[in-house]
């Protein structure tokens, strides 16, 4: 298990998006970064994944075992990013295919993951034969198949309808339990349902306020009466950026 502390300054063009920003991902926990569109949350995730060119992003990501993060993360995006020319099982095993080392074990694991995401029997179908919700389940299975110490999720359920999203949040939350995960979202309810800790990201350069820790274990029921207080807290932070600046 890996915990990750990151510190960074980041500018895009002349604009400084993060300045001496720091965030800690506790080992085995799901941390959620909540922010409006354009708050820089997705940029931050791309930086951690090493997807930003080094001339725009300066910063460091420190892990507790001091091994660099490169090659130790799994990525799930808003688009399912399934390859339409590969069967579902090959899509789940994409990582091992791309590294040129797929084994029988990988296939077996993919079958098991299909069971876990409640999609048994579709392994030989193609992505275009599945619905949007099913495809995102496959994307989740592909992310889990990587078995990486850190999972990065970039608004993974934003493209889905409300009830499918609710189901998938529950499923993902159960399957990601005890894996270090950073989830980026603009949906406060998603954060409340899935996260162990929620940071609201706001301002330029971006800052985070003190985290909100919702009561109970994820996946939470949103109807739970104890959610109200956390929800109020989150909405307050989202709508009053000046409060964040003080708290930070």
């Amino acid at each position: 298990m890996t915990s990750v502390a990151l510190k960074l300054s980041l500018s895009y063009g002349n604009e400084c998006i993060f300045e001496d920003f720091s965030l800690e991902l506790e080992s085995g926990k799901l941390v959620c970064l909540l922010g409006k569109s354009g708050s820089g949350k997705s940029t931050l995730l791309h930086f951690i994944a090493g997807l930003l060119p080094s001339d725009v992003a300066r910063g460091s990501v420190v892990t507790d075992d001091e091994i660099p993060l490169g090659g130790r993360i799994a990525w799930m995006a808003q688009q399912d990013l399934l390859l339409p020319w590969l069967k579902i099982i090959d899509n789940i095993n994409l990582g091992s295919l791309l590294r040129g080392n797929r084994t029988k074990q990988d296939r077996d694991q993919a079958q098991q993951l299909l069971k876990d995401v409640e999609l048994e029997g579709v392994e030989n179908r193609y992505p275009h034969e599945l619905s949007g919700g099913m495809r995102q389940r496959v994307a989740l299975a592909r992310t889990l198949a990587e078995q990486r110490p850190v999972n990065l999720l970039d608004e993974p359920f934003s493209g889905l309808d409300a009830s499918t999203r609710y189901q998938l949040q529950g499923l993902a939350s159960r399957l990601l339990a005890n894996r270090t995960t950073l989830l980026v979202t603009h949906d406060p309810l998603e954060a409340l349902r899935m996260a162990d800790q929620i940071f609201v990201l706001d301002g330029r350069p971006a800052q985070v306020a003190s985290p909100v820790t919702p009561p109970g274990d994820p996946p939470r029921q949103l109807a739970d009466s104890r959610m109200g207080e956390s929800y109020t807290q989150l909405m307050h932070q989202l709508n009053h950026p000046e409060v964040n600046q003080h708290a930070a």
Partner: peptide, 21 residues
């Protein structure tokens, strides 16, 4: 699609396998 290329980079693809798959 840049999303696919990002995914391939994160997964540790080589030039050859990224071209092929």
């Amino acid at each position: 699609d840049s999303g696919w290329i990002n995914l391939a980079r994160i997964m540790g693809a080589s030039n050859h396998t990224a071209l092929k798959y």
